[in-house]
Nucleic acid binder design. Structure first.
Lengths: 197, 197
DNA sequence: CCTACCGATCGGTAGG
DNA sequence: CCTACCGATCGGTAGG
């Protein structure tokens, strides 16, 4: 799903994919290598022919996701459009990532605390950097009078966390349509709840 | 902090408080009873004179929080005010709980998956019920033409998750003032980002 | 509240 | 990729 097309999923890919599903469901610490091995269909010891350690799996998941978001941020920064349009594009990207790829994204968002140094610091820095760049877009919009005078960091916080809550949806029976969800969120975030007309 | 005044904090209270801090920091599964005992200042075996099991601690934290939120919801449902006012009151309650009591609230929000049956189902039911009641307030506002026609469940999702992200704030050096944070969030959620005048 | 200890399970390795 | 196994650590109990 995340991998480039044409290439077949290797055993390592399968392990990462199953691991993301289990880490999301039970959490990193509560998932044992024996659990994971069973879901892959091999013995626990055999996992170590494909990965070096349990932590390496988490690193692969977290940095895969981080790279994807960073690339998208660069594209948006370089693109045209006013600040509201940029925020809308970012918002739609986040939502789509959450819907299409939600196990990886969810794990990266909630389980990164279990990374070990130096990966932990590296990841935290990337996170901080991403939020700053997001806030800079909002601040730019405020200066240009496209966005009302709110605290940019608070707005970033709200947007990022609002989107990361999509999981509760994803598994609901209603199975809200992805596009409809996107549009609803965009309206609420950009225009608020209150009826103005 | 949560306890009724006048009564001194018992050893059990101290254990629950330290546990909330550690569960938030490292996660439930990654916190050992030996870790917890050390932070309380006794041996691991001695914890069991005050609590029955590790899971009982999590139960106490989660249901304490759930009860507080349910009581507040009842008060708001029974009170007067239009739908926007009710939502604003709910929002402010959530934010305040998160700021003043955030270790307990955070743990209840992120670690409840580690509850065991029958507590797990009980907690999930209360959660679902709470969200339905929140959505009902929004739907009522839509009918009365106070709120624009958005999907009420999506709005609840956004609001609840936006607020639960406050933790990243709480520990930031900026130490944003609680009241200022509240006002910023209320404006963004009710009026959106776009400048309308 | 402590010392001493239990069986179970953990992440990971040796050797083939 | 498996069998066999390691030392460490886990939640929890017995007995005082």
């Amino acid at each position: 799903m995340v991998k480039s097309p044409r290439r077949k999923a290797s055993k390592k890919d399968i392990i990462l994919q199953k691991a993301a599903a289990m880490f999301r469901e039970k959490g990193f610490a509560a998932t044992s290598m024996r659990d994971l091995a069973e879901s892959v269909g091999i013995e626990a010891a055999s996992l170590y022919n494909h990965i070096r350690s349990k932590n390496e799996i988490l690193e692969a998941i977290c940095f895969n996701v981080a790279n994807r978001f960073n690339e998208n941020m660069e594209a948006i920064e370089a693109g045209n459009g006013n600040s509201i349009q940029k925020i809308e594009t970012l918002l739609r990207f986040h939502i789509r990532q959450m819907v299409e790829n939600y196990e990886e994204v969810y794990v990266s968002d909630r389980e990164w605390k279990h990374l070990e140094e130096p990966y932990l610091s590296n990841f935290q820095n990337q996170r901080r950097n991403y939020r700053k760049r997001f806030a800079a877009i909002i601040e730019n919009g405020i200066q240009k009078n496209e966005i009302k005078k709110i605290d940019a960091s608070t707005a970033v916080l709200i947007i990022l966390h609002a989107v990361s809550g999509i999981e509760s949806w994803h598994r609901s029976k209603e199975k809200i349509n992805g596009e409809e969800l996107e549009n609803n969120m965009v309206v609420i975030m950009t225009d608020g709840l209150r009826k103005t007309i």
